[in-house]
Amino acid sequence: MGKDNGPVDMVQGTLDMLILQALRNDVLHGFAIAQVINQRSSDHIKVETGSLYPALHRIERRGWITAEWGLSESNRRAKYYRITHEGKKQLKVEISRWNQMVAAISAILNPPTEEATFQKVSS
């Protein structure tokens, strides 16, 4: 799984976290959010529009982000999203959960060697 094999599928449940992270310090429209995620993942993660916009609308309904209409850099009418205080709190929760998950999966994928285990027991 890597750049040569094309973009990876989004791990279920992580899109909300990525959107909140993209909006952590910026006010962005949907297209820009998708670009930010894509660029920061070095093109490994590509957010499909069929997932991005329902997720944006869902977390907006939850109050984690707010939206307002404005003009884009190309002078088009665009809907801009801004993270809320609740969204920032939720982002911390999501990141913490994610880190726990990564640590747990890493532990499974990289078990300690028998020698290391023996040494640990001997000491």
Partner: peptide
């Protein structure tokens, strides 16, 4: 509004 937002995204892809 939903339609406008999605059309904007499509236009940005085209650009």
């Amino acid at each position: 509004e939903i339609r406008d937002e999605l059309e904007f995204h499509q236009a940005m892809l085209e650009e």
